[in-house]
């Protein structure tokens, strides 16, 4: 049975939503979970709801890293912060995977401090899932974009490794038999984007096992042309924030329009089932979280504003990744790349 350690104190709604999620998962699965955080608070929350104690253990820790704290400084100063304790437990073999909705930087740094990178991996990547159009039957409605912030600049081989890792993850979690991997660039031609991207394109094209479709441009991110979009951290983060910003602006425009005139309001009411479907698709609560790939262990980073449903999904995703052997799979593909 997979053992998942959950950072109970990380996230905007911690520890309430974390404990609620773990309680719920304990009633509907056989995943063993460890809640790391303030034991008294955690037990009081457990007591107030339904749970299966046989699948839950609690590890007390003294401090928490806040969402707005400087991650580097906080990881150094707070040795017994919940995210550090959680990462350490995985490193010691007390758990197989870690889930956190806390400070993203601290989560990445805690993993980097306590875990080893897989043999041959040069940099870990933070992935993010995003809603997009689908182009073919059976295609997942969510695409995977990596890296979105664990790195800033990357070398060509590192981008190729991101492609391998993203492909393995998408195959395992999205159940897409052969995910289409695209390299984010300023043009579809292989010679575009400068030395690093040209070389990365060449390396990826030499890996038939990962289904590389070549360079993809910005508009391809939303159209579903690629299942896995590879980018260096700086660019990936900009794209991710742009997508989130566009979604927010669209939502705000629709709200304003509805207040402008009764005809627009009527039109919005007519469109509401479709809008609701889009909202469901774009809702991060349904997919839970995104992985930090490249380490010897599984880590799922959930959105900071995650409620119990999203955390529960993140726990299940992490357990599935362990059960399906995603780490050995990535390790094997990376070895082949070398």
């Amino acid at each position: 049975m997979p053992r998942v350690v959950v950072d109970a104190m990380g996230g905007d709604f911690a520890p309430e939503e974390m404990v609620r999620a773990v309680s719920q998962v304990s009633l509907e699965s056989d995943i063993q979970m460890v809640l790391v955080g303030h034991a008294e608070q955690i037990q009081a929350l457990l007591d107030a709801g339904e749970y299966n104690p046989e699948l839950i253990s609690v590890r007390h820790c003294g401090s928490v890293i806040g969402m707005s704290e400087d991650p580097r400084e906080a990881i150094r100063a707070k040795k017994d912060a919940s995210i550090s304790v959680a990462a350490r437990m995985v490193a010691l073999g007390e758990a197989d995977a870690m889930v956190s909705a806390g400070n993203t930087g601290a989560c990445v740094l805690a993993a980097a401090k306590h875990w080893k990178l897989l043999a041959g991996i040069r940099k870990a990547a933070l992935a993010s899932v995003f809603p997009r159009q689908t182009e073919y039957e059976g295609q997942d409605q969510l695409g995977l974009l990596l890296d979105v912030g664990a790195t800033i600049r990357c070398e060509a081989v590192e981008l190729a490794q991101f492609g391998v890792m993203g492909s393995a993850y998408a195959r395992c979690i999205s159940k897409v038999a052969s995910p289409r991997v695209g390299l984010l660039n300023m043009g579809a031609e292989a010679n575009k984007g400068g030395d690093v991207l040209v070389e990365a394109n060449r390396l990826l094209a030499g890996l038939p096992a990962i289904g590389f479709i070549g360079n993809v441009e910005g508009h391809d991110v939303a159209t579903g042309h690629a299942d896995v979009v590879v980018a260096e951290g700086l660019l990936g983060n900009v794209v991710l924030k742009l997508l989130e910003g566009v979604a927010e602006v669209a939502s705000s425009l629709a709200n304003n329009a509805a207040h402008e005139s009764w005809r627009w309001r009527f039109g919005m009411a007519m469109l509401s089932p479709g809008i609701e479907r889009m909202r469901t698709l774009a809702d991060f609560q349904t997919y839970g979280g995104a992985p930090i790939l490249g380490f010897e262990h599984v880590c799922i980073k959930a959105h900071g504003r995650s409620r119990s449903g999203a955390i529960g999904n993140a726990i299940k995703v992490s357990a599935k990744a362990v059960r399906d052997g995603i780490i050995p799979d990535i390790a094997q593909k990376i070895a082949e790349l070398r």
Binding site: M1, Q32, P53, E54, L55, S57
Partner: peptide, 17 residues
């Protein structure tokens, strides 16, 4: 067909309560 961890978790739960 429980794993041993379930036994220990049960005991710890009773203790925490």
């Amino acid at each position: 067909g429980q794993g041993g961890h379930r036994l220990r978790n049960s005991i710890d739960d009773l203790t925490r309560r």
